[in-house]
Simulated scan of single mutants.
Amino acid sequence: MKAPRYDTEGLASVLPSVARTLAPAAFEGEGRKLPQAKAGIVVLADGLGARLLRKRSAHAPFLHEHLDHVQTLAAGFPTTTATSMGTFGTGLPPGAHGLAGYQVVDPATGMLFNELTWQRGPEPRVWQPNATVFERADQADLRPAMIGPDYFEGSGLTNAALRGAVFYGAEALEDRIDAALAAVRRGRRLVYLYWGEIDKAGHVHGIDSPQWAAELEAFDRGFERLASQRPVGTSLTLTADHGMVDVPLDARVDIAKTPYLRDGVRTVGGEMRALHLYVEPGARDDVLAAWRKEVGSDGHVLTRDELSDLGWVGALDAGTAGRFGDVVVSMRAARGYVDSRVMSHQVLALVGQHGAMTPQELDVPFLHLPPR
């Protein structure tokens, strides 16, 4: 089984590697050693797993031309956007940055909240107090900029994982590309562009759908334009936060309707393929045994300590440990577990899923085009 990586072979290394090309002294010894540049644009394509890109590269002619130079990095666990953004934005493993999953319990309140939407969530800078790469880049006079949809500005996840960059809001891909190019021309040396439509198409229609292919084609055209129009001296880097698999509707078990799976479980967090089970006092061993019997060889069922000991989330400390489930489930087969008590109807209906430790979900691409 592949494991997450938080070194130069992991998603955590992407921003420090690019920042090092721009400010070698400030980021000395961090990330990968890449050719120096005057500026760098980093594009994160949500949901564009490395294996998906290779499988469907016929729909991405520009990226297909560079496929031999696309390397594979490992995202962290769980392979979900909130956690990966924490890893990407801080360069730290989840055990350190503490963004533990899609839905997690705040140990201070005992309440479940969504780290993606951040509704009723804690103060982001308290929840994630570590310096971000953008904060460090700003101190190194790289004048970082972030480009994404307007609702990202000031959001909880942005403030927790990506603070420190000047925000430019733009909706359409072409507008985001224009904003990225303009930012570099205005002296913003480290520019980050987020694109989420590939992920949305996979969730709604599935990864083998024509809608998914159409979104990849549109992204490929936009990425090619960025590559051709970037100012001289500017590098361009592509990565993603996770991949995706399809989970048939008939391969899902509702915990709310399955008494033996909810016995001893106080709250279900995480998501369909990567569950955090927060248990009642004294019930951990019984919950662990029941879930191991249920999941069998189709996944992994671990205690919180085993999760850390295996290196899946890095070292846990007192400030982050309670955010991870007492029992954690990661699926291998194309199956999932839902809880209709805490998951919305929209989430329950999604076709494409991620979160687990399969290579299809864990592997993300890394393509670095050096300055022209």
Rank of each mutant, 00 (worst) to 15 (best):
A58I: 10
G29V: 08
G31W: 09
A318Y: 10
Q139L: 14
A321R: 15
A334R: 12
W212V: 07
W312H: 07
S209I: 11
Q353G: 02
V184T: 15
S155F: 06
D339V: 04
V133T: 05
D199S: 10
L193M: 15
E306G: 01
A161T: 05
V43Y: 05
R5F: 05
I177F: 05
H242K: 13
L277E: 02
L236W: 11
G206N: 02
G206K: 00
G206C: 04
A356E: 12
R176C: 04
L181I: 11
V313G: 05
T267N: 04
F152E: 06
V328L: 09
V328H: 07
L190H: 11
E30T: 08
P210Q: 06
H242M: 12
I207T: 03
A283H: 15
L350N: 11
H59W: 07
H242Y: 13
R186V: 08
P365H: 14
P78C: 14
E123K: 11
I198L: 15
E217K: 00
A145G: 04
V253D: 08
A160F: 12
M343S: 01
G352P: 00
G352W: 06
D106T: 04
V184W: 13
A45H: 01
Y168A: 07
A180P: 04
G164D: 04
P93N: 05
R125A: 12
V133Q: 06
G148M: 09
D250C: 08
K257G: 03
D46A: 11
R341W: 13
S340A: 10
D138T: 09
L307A: 10
V328I: 14
A251D: 08
A170K: 10
T83F: 08
H276E: 05
L142I: 07
G110V: 06
L34Y: 13
D254L: 08
P365Y: 12
R185V: 10
S344W: 13
A39C: 09
T303S: 15
T83S: 14
P107K: 13
P124E: 07
P61R: 09
R335V: 10
Q103P: 05
D250H: 12
W127S: 03
E294H: 15
D254V: 08
S330R: 04
